[in-house]
Write a protein that binds this DNA or RNA. Structure first.
Lengths: 223, 223
DNA sequence: GGCCGGTGAATGAGCGCTCAGTATCCGAGC
DNA sequence: GCTCGGATACTGAGCGCTCATTCACCGGCC
């Protein structure tokens, strides 16, 4: 339970430096961590610059020594969150066996989102507060993530390791299960991040190893 | 494709009245619909009373003729969203066959969230802006929803129709897939609400008809 | 001495919400 | 038919406040 898991993006100074990047000053990293907590708790617009700065012992103006604006701070948080999540997937893409590859990708994606559910909440739910340019930049990063899973499923099908499933549907379901973790996951619950990763990885393999097309014609009533 | 589906909570006056309740005045319903659109687009705190009222041709003060506060308007939206979603499940709970029962529950849940993804987005993401009392009232409604799915899975296991799966995990996955729809679903995409309902219902049945415990002891590395 | 990191008061924009006033409608009284 | 009283819906100016951001200033460290 110790080690990789951290309720916080920065449990220790070393973890904080690794997560936010070594090139940033300690105070900047503290502000990012404070921002994560505040934005996750109340959302971007409900968070004041005083909330963020007072938590690290600075006055409101102190924020502008390290960041150009509140929005810039949010952007740095969301960008770093997406980049770190993507980093986690790298290396698993080249696993030779298609099943082991997809299993490992899903496991890593799920474990990351459970471990970093606070950063994840900001990354997923505060996108709308970004400027159009920043927003677009994040969408670009997301396309990479989607592509990683898309390719893993596609390759498995081409290699005849998976059934001829609907790639988009399966990828959507994988991303949904992983992303939605940040909404409900709390450490100390019934399942550890690893257990959730295993469960969802099993589920994913079950999605791709048998047909998903046999939907009978629907009755039509939904009222 | 016509009929039950509506991008908007209130495509026509008749639909609006049915969704928000016949006892409400037409202007109140218009404000609720405008609130949904504004809150979904920018979030509660980024939405001004002027945004909401100007969309229905009223001045800022006009909101307070119909609602006590902006928060009260949000609460009415979220409460109605949860109640309507629950209403949709009712009736499917008593289907005699366990598999058909669970399938129908998932289908209805998914179709509702796709059809009402705008209201759903507000209901799911703006909970934090509610007063503590209102928040608690909504959590109470959510417990009902969880219980419906919990019981359906539990009963299936007891009747030996399902494998001895982890009920909480399965219910979490069902709710995640359904709820996360409101984040990404847009009408006009590859799948209709009904197709998504069928796909996720199939997926659910696959979760409960074979074991989910065989997770091997994890290696420990997630970096 | 100059630079870095920080202060805290000031600024001006914009917020939710109030309220005195107004337009419109409707039924009662004659 | 007409007037009147009162209820209802709404206006729009504006109050009191908070916000993000700026800036003149300053202590300590290379």
């Amino acid at each position: 339970m110790a080690g990789s898991a951290a309720d916080d993006p920065a449990g220790t100074d070393a973890e904080s430096a690794r997560f936010w990047g070594l090139e940033r000053s300690e105070q900047a990293r503290r502000l990012l961590t404070s921002g994560v907590r505040c934005f996750a708790a109340g959302g971007f617009h409900a968070t004041t610059t005083r909330d963020i700065t007072s938590a690290v012992g600075l006055s409101p103006g102190g924020l502008y020594v390290h960041f150009a604006s509140k929005e810039q701070l949010l952007f740095e948080i969301i960008r770093t969150g997406h980049v770190r999540s993507l980093d986690t997937l790298r290396g698993a893409e080249t696993t030779p066996d298609a099943q082991a590859r997809l299993r490992e990708l899903v496991r890593r994606f799920v474990v990351w989102h459970a471990d970093h559910h606070v950063v994840g909440r900001v990354s997923q739910y505060e996108l709308g507060a970004l400027s159009p340019q920043h927003h677009e930049e994040i969408l670009e990063l997301r396309r990479f993530t989607t592509t990683v899973f898309h390719d893993a499923v596609r390759q498995g099908i081409d290699e005849r390791a998976f059934a001829d499933v609907d790639v988009h549907r399966v990828v959507r379901a994988i991303l949904s299960l992983g992303v939605d973790l940040v909404r409900w996951y709390r450490p100390g619950g019934a399942d550890s991040p690893q257990q959730l990763g295993d469960f969802y990885a099993d589920l994913t393999l079950r999605m791709v190893t048998s047909a998903t097309e046999p939907s009978p014609p629907p009755g039509g009533d939904t009222a």
